[in-house]
Amino acid sequence: MTDSTPPPMPDFPPPPPTPKRPRNWVVISSAAAVIATVIGTGVFVVNSRDDKDSNASSTTAAETSTPTDDTITPAMEPEPTPENTEPEVMSLTDGVQWDGGIEVELTGWTRGVTGPYAAPESTPFVKFKVTIRNTGTDTVDLSGAWMTCIYGTNGTQSEQVFDSDGGLDGLPQVHLRPGKSVSAPTGCELPKDEEYLQVEMVPMSESEVAIFAGNVK
Rank of each mutant, 00 (worst) to 15 (best):
M1Y: 05
P7E: 11
P10Q: 09
D11I: 14
P16R: 08
P16M: 09
K20A: 14
P22S: 12
R23Y: 03
N24A: 10
V26D: 10
S29K: 05
S30W: 07
V34T: 11
A36I: 10
I39D: 01
G40V: 11
G40R: 02
V43K: 07
V43R: 08
F44P: 01
V45N: 01
V45G: 04
N47R: 14
S48V: 09
K52Y: 08
D53T: 13
D53L: 14
S57K: 13
T60F: 11
T60I: 11
T60Y: 07
T60C: 03
T66K: 11
P67K: 10
T68D: 08
P78Y: 04
P78S: 12
P80Q: 06
T81S: 13
T81A: 11
N84A: 01
N84I: 02
E86Q: 13
V89T: 15
T93C: 00
T93V: 07
D94V: 04
G95W: 00
G95Y: 00
G100I: 02
G101W: 04
I102E: 03
V104M: 11
W109F: 15
G112F: 00
T114D: 01
G115N: 12
A119H: 07
E121M: 10
T123W: 04
V130I: 12
V130Q: 06
T131A: 05
R133D: 07
R133T: 15
T135E: 14
T135C: 04
T137V: 15
D138N: 11
T139G: 06
D141G: 06
D141K: 07
S143D: 14
T148S: 10
T148V: 06
N154R: 14
G155D: 08
G155M: 07
G155C: 09
Q160N: 10
D165W: 04
G167T: 04
G167I: 01
D169S: 10
Q173F: 00
V174M: 03
L176V: 05
P178Y: 03
S183H: 05
E200F: 00
P203R: 01
S205H: 06
I211C: 05
N215I: 02
